[in-house]
């Protein structure tokens, strides 16, 4: 069930609109930090077709967050080339193509739920973007009842849903998500993941999702790549079909996929000597 991503079927599945167009490209990207024994990113090359849900999985300190930060233009690589829709990341962010969901929900505590979701529409107004109706987004994420509440009065799962709504509010072409469900309990995690899937299914922005949860990676992704000590292993496709209903986590196919992804993770680490 796990297979290399180069197959034509995979392209067909994951790239509506422009089949086969690699919109996110990393070419030999290296990034070092003085405090780390090995590079956070070590000659990473990667290409992701438009509209794909791409997950990078690995343990803490493997370089996952650095990869996202380089793609977002928050961090500059020491060497190598990064291209987002044919442009450098800084250009993509100027054009408001990037949605960012950090580890913490990072909501503004003084803004109500609806005003947090509206935030992206209120900054960098020069960039053209098709705004979504924030009210409709709240409804889709089951947050309408919390519209006027402050983040301090929300549960962790609700806050993370607001962060997702905020990221979708301006229809970004690329969504970068850094372990967004890391702080949530198992049940909430599944619930929010399915809400994210529904929202993604409707719009199909390209998503690069970072996690250390195998189950989450399988549930959400078209393609998963394992990262360890700054090195990216070859990507594997997740052949689960779409849409993926709630309860798919209990299916035989799902279990097989998680088992073989775990095996792959283990192999990647014994190879890396980690």
């Amino acid at each position: 069930m796990l297979r290399a991503t180069s197959g034509p079927r995979d392209r067909l599945l994951s790239a509506p609109g422009t089949p086969g167009a690699d919109c996110i490209v990393l070419d030999g990207v290296t990034k070092r930090f003085d405090a780390m024994a090995w590079p956070a990113l070590d000659e990473v090359s990667l290409s992701i077709p438009q509209g794909q849900f791409f997950t990078v999985i690995g343990p803490s300190g493997a370089g996952k967050s650095t990869l996202l930060r380089v793609l977002a233009g928050i961090s500059r690589p020491d060497s190598g080339r990064v291209s987002v829709f044919g442009e450098p990341p800084e250009q993509a962010s100027r054009a408001k193509h990037l949605g960012w969901v950090p580890q913490s929900p990072a909501l503004l505590p003084w803004r109500s739920v609806i005003d947090n979701v509206r935030l992206p529409l209120q900054v960098n107004r020069g960039a053209k973007c098709e705004a979504r109706d924030p009210e409709e987004l709240l409804a889709r994420l089951n947050l309408s009842h919390a519209r006027d509440m402050l983040p301090a009065h929300l549960s962790g799962g609700m806050r993370q849903r607001v962060a997702i709504a905020r990221a979708f509010a301006f229809r970004p072409r690329l969504l970068l998500m850094d372990e967004p469900f890391g702080a949530l309990d198992e049940m909430t995690r599944e619930h929010v993941a399915h809400l994210l899937l529904e929202l993604w299914q409707a719009e199909k922005p390209t998503v690069i999702f970072v996690t250390h949860s195998v189950g989450e990676a399988v549930l959400l992704s078209d393609t998963v790549a394992v990262i360890g000590r700054g090195r990216l292993s070859p990507s594997v496709g997740i052949d689960l079909g779409r849409p993926r209903p709630e309860g798919i986590e209990d299916s035989q196919g799902f279990h097989q996929l998680t088992a073989s992804l775990r095996a792959q993770l283990r192999r990647a680490f014994s190879d890396a000597g980690g």
Binding site: I74, G99, W100, P102, A106, L108, N124, R166
Partner: peptide, 21 residues
């Protein structure tokens, strides 16, 4: 909050917008 600063950065918010908002 660092995550919030990153949200502003990825949106390419201006210095003034980041200061004010």
């Amino acid at each position: 909050d660092r995550g919030a600063v990153e949200v502003f950065e990825t949106l390419h918010a201006s210095r003034w917008e980041t200061l004010w908002r």
